[in-house]
Design a binder for these strands. Structure first.
Lengths: 108, 108
DNA sequence: ACAACTCATAACCAAATGGTGATGATTCCG
DNA sequence: CGGAATCATCACCATTTGGTTATGAGTTGT
C-alpha cells in the first residue's frame, strides 16, 4: 500500500468540497459519480475533477461497472498526514510517547 | 485555548513553504521574521504573508520585542486536524482504540 | 540626529485553482 | 435500433494564491 506524497494529501484535503466528498465516501461507503454529484452541490465535471485530485493523493479508488464509476475512500492514504502530525505536534506526540512507554514494558 | 476552524488549519498547511516555516518553528523554537526569511528562501514580505495565514489558523503566535517580531509555533492548534483525522481514518482509529483499551485496562 | 535595521503593508503580476457548459465515448433499456 | 444515462475531458472564465518590488512606520546603535 504505497502512499502518495504528503504534499498531495495536504493539498487534496485543503479544499472543503473535496474534504466533504472524502467524508461522504468514508461514512456512506462506495458511491457513483452521479450520487456524489447530487451530494456535493456542484456540477458533475467539478466532481470528476475533485475525484481526480483525490485519486492522485491515493485517497480514493475507483471501480468501473458498466456506465457507472464507483468511488470508495482509502483512509490508509491519510498515513502521510498522520505521520506528519505525530512528528510535529508535541501535543499529539505526548499521547504516543505514553503508548510507546507502555508497550516497551514500563521502564522507570 | 480556542481553536481556529479546521478549514483555516487545512488551508494553512497545504502550502509547502508555510509547512516548512511551521516545522522550523516547531523544531528550533522561537524565531524572528529575519531568521525565518533566510531560512525560507523567499522574500521577507512573502514570509510575513505566510505568517499572517498561519496566525489566522492560530498555528503561530507572535511577540514584539523592539523592532523584531518573534514567532513561535502553537502545536495545539493542530487539534482540529488531529480530530478530523481520528474521525475519518479507520486505520488511525484502530491504533487509538488500542491505546484507549490499554489505558483503560490498566486503570484499576 | 541620523543611518541602518526590522517588519508589515501596498501595489502589482503570473500561475494555479475551482467552477462552468459543451462534447463525446460508453453503456443500458424499451 | 435508438434514446437516455453516466462520466471524463475539453475549452473557457473569474478568483485566489504565492510571489515580487517599493514604501513607510517604528527601533536601535553610533
Amino acid at each position: 500500500m504505497k502512499s502518495a506524497s504528503p504534499q498531495h494529501v495536504f493539498r487534496a484535503l485543503a479544499d472543503p468540497t473535496r474534504r466533504a466528498i472524502f467524508e461522504e465516501l468514508t461514512r456512506q461507503g462506495e458511491q457513483t459519480v452521479h450520487a456524489l454529484t447530487s451530494f456535493a452541490g456542484v456540477s458533475q465535471p467539478a466532481v470528476s475533477k475533485h475525484l481526480t485530485v483525490l485519486k492522485k493523493a491515493r485517497l480514493v479508488r475507483h471501480r468501473r461497472a458498466g456506465r457507472e464509476t464507483h468511488y470508495r475512500a482509502q483512509p490508509e492514504a491519510l498515513a502521510p498526514m498522520a505521520d506528519w502530525l505525530r512528528a510535529y505536534s508535541t501535543f499529539w506526540r505526548e499521547r504516543f510517547d505514553r503508548l510507546e512507554a507502555l508497550l516497551d514494558g514500563m521502564e522507570p
